[in-house]
Design a protein around this nucleic acid. Sequence first.
DNA 1: CCACAGATTCTCT
DNA 2: GAGAATCTGTGGC
Length: 236
Amino acid sequence: MRTREASDSGLVTRPNRRFFATDAATLAKRLIGCRLVRVLSDGERLSGVIVETEAYLGVQDRASHAFGGRRTARNEAMYSPPGTSYVYFTYGMHFCMNVVCGAVDEPAAVLLRALEPSEGLARMRLFRATPSRPAPADTDLCSGPGNLCRALAIDRALNGVDLVESDQIWVERGGFGRLRLETSPRIGIPNAGEWVDKPLRWFVAGHPHVSAGAAARSGEQGVRKKPLQRRGGKSR
DNA sequence: CCACAGATTCTCT
DNA sequence: GAGAATCTGTGGC
């Protein structure tokens, strides 16, 4: 296990490959409360705490890009070792980021759906700005898989990157107490037959940064609770 | 608040 | 040529 100086709270741990080498449902839960860190080419560090994930189980999962063992140029990264990133382009304009898990050649992955932004919010706001909304609210910056990627400048270039070794993007273990998790069916997979309704999405209960469409579909009312706080956290 | 349509282009059949 | 692990703006109540 390597350690690394965090910018705000002393030593934090960066997980090794074993952390990722588990089934998708386990990793989906495990990643909640961890921090996703992105270092831009100019050196600026952006990060956020993962608050919403979805598990894509493997060849048997009809909602997965690797259903039935499908293996193409696009989803090739799913067949890489656990801890690899799988970034794909969809709907003609959005990127989505997954963390590959399972064993080598077992195409399982966890989709990152929302973060509570921690570092680099001003830069994220720039990346997420549109003419009609030049300064998006903090709760909108990284809520939803496409938004998260835009806020952190995650695109094709980060497909297939090794999150265990990369200095551009990685995960750090959570420093939080026990988080109350909820599950729901996954979002946006209407044609996955019996897999549509399986509870393979996890999120922090009542968390304001969970993606909006998702909250609606899980029966949440627009609950606004406190953001996450570091356990024993020293305030900066 | 909710529902719906449109955007936009890649990927595989 | 169809469909996509999405998001946003618009229009209705």
